[in-house]
Design a protein around this nucleic acid. Sequence first.
DNA 1: TTGAAAGCGCTACCAA
DNA 2: TTGGTAGCGCTTTCAA
Lengths: 356, 356
Amino acid sequence: MSPSSRPGAGRPTMTDVARAARVSLKTVSRVVNDEASVTASTALAVRRAIAELGYRRNEHARALRQHRALGMLGLVIKDVSNPFYSAIARGVEERVRDRGFLVVAGSSDEDAERERALLEIFCERRVAGLLVVPTGHDHSFLAAEMAMGTALVFIDRPGHNIAADTILLDNFGGARAGVQHLLDHGHRRVAFVGDLPEVFTTAERAKGYRAALRSAGLGYDRGLVRVGCHNTTSAAEATRELLAQPDPPTAIFACNNRITFGVLAALAGMGGRQPRPALLGFDDFELAAYMTPPVSVVAYDPVEVGRQAAELICRQLDRPEGRPRRIIVPTSVVARGSGELPPAGTGLYPMARAHG
Amino acid sequence: MSPSSRPGAGRPTMTDVARAARVSLKTVSRVVNDEASVTASTALAVRRAIAELGYRRNEHARALRQHRALGMLGLVIKDVSNPFYSAIARGVEERVRDRGFLVVAGSSDEDAERERALLEIFCERRVAGLLVVPTGHDHSFLAAEMAMGTALVFIDRPGHNIAADTILLDNFGGARAGVQHLLDHGHRRVAFVGDLPEVFTTAERAKGYRAALRSAGLGYDRGLVRVGCHNTTSAAEATRELLAQPDPPTAIFACNNRITFGVLAALAGMGGRQPRPALLGFDDFELAAYMTPPVSVVAYDPVEVGRQAAELICRQLDRPEGRPRRIIVPTSVVARGSGELPPAGTGLYPMARAHG
DNA sequence: TTGAAAGCGCTACCAA
DNA sequence: TTGGTAGCGCTTTCAA
């Protein structure tokens, strides 16, 4: 008794189906692949056998034989559970669903080693494409993969030492417009609270911040800048420090959603003991409109970022030739209230005032 | 020239490495798999060739030969970008990382057809285990897969027509405790805003709501119940309707995070035109503490839900025998302010009052 | 310590 | 319309 005919041991193969339907292996293959040249009665017998045995085609064997990567995309993001990144994952999934691609996502947690390990694993699994929010500072090891046909797209930050399609936000322009918005509302002491300064987006947004100050003829006051906040807690701490200064800022520009949440935490903790600073955050978030006051932000669509990244991957897969593209996703300032608070600070939020 | 020796065409195989290192295929295999019986010098030569050619083991061929599923888990959730579900994904990823499992996640969007399609695809890819937040009402088609060794765990809702490990929240107890909390603060007219009533969690939470009312000697007032809200917008609409009634509720129990956001939207839209109802939501969310007033919730740890689901999968993979387990994750009421507002309603939130 | 040959489940190619 | 045979890249088994 051959192994594949033992009932219950292992899954049925095409050979098993062939035996059950009393046809050849090749005929089963034809039925499974919907090839035309099979008699209706033969096909029926095969399908019956398939149903009876619970046969399911082995995609690994198939891919192996066809010399193609399995329909799988590897996505490396900072954290699968961070709404910004999971929105990207969603966009990618939507865009490649019709092509039959599955998305394997892994969290790098901003750890270059972990990132590389994930990418290596993805390559061993022969994914068709790699989508990476890069953390490490050398991606040259992916060049060989690309040469062998693996598609590669960097998202949100540029990769290093390798030419590949990249999709970025308009970090500089967005930050400059956001800070300009605060300046337009009369602020002259605008603080910048940011992530680690070596992160690409932080650096770009800091440049935008400085550019806005410069064009308003304002100097750069180091006392108003706090970077290195890698999480909500440290951002809250930085905010408290900023506001405890003798001459505190009247407005705060929060460099990303994590930072914005930290600032909100600090402000919630203060209660109404001092004039509330204006707040403008980079990255929109679902509850922004329902905060008190509603939070103004520099917004863009992260799902669209994912869709476009997937689009780039698909293009590479369809036409491997072509030089690397770079897409810049536009941002816009969404005024909701927190960014329009006046410098004086009445101590009342717009909504609270309505209640009084 | 054999296909595998054409430079640039296809990836190098073990055969290519063997040729380059002037050893046999099998020796390369030994080196790649860290088998002991290889001379140091031979191993060195092989490793050099591997590095030169950029060789990477093909995991598909490997899995095929070894008759094992590839180290991959399929996760079907409602929406990859919903924080609750992406937190589950994160928990799963964390727990199986050490075992070398990758997680492929797909969004069912609460569509039974899509769910089934995803599960079929996962099976064809021979995933080792399936984690499913079930939407459909018949999962008997997975029985054959389970019999062949695929692990299966249902998350958040029970599956149908099949016995499998399941991890659920204490929906009934959580909802009852939450509503009880509102009753304890003097409310007698507590509204229930919920998702589609046929969703398991909605039904269970509604039962908890009714149980709490019953034990307080309160009747069930249909005018205070709004179900069928499948998104934030419809929940906001339902909230507005509830509050526009002649005898409006003084407190609202929101059945899940989507609903809570809808209620918050409706309340934000009202401004301070009428007494603010107390609010208690099922599902915690990151900004809950920074809302005005801070939002009280029935909380639990969704990442832990993912971890435990993954734990169940691992157990099944290790010891296929054993009857289905069921885990109930406990919940707790987190009082932050919105659930402790008095029935009278002063029209001022606690924070706003501090400012006045 | 090393290698040759068979075969995993499937598809490509050629023959009937 | 059907079937046989070879072989994808790897591991297993057995022999040298």
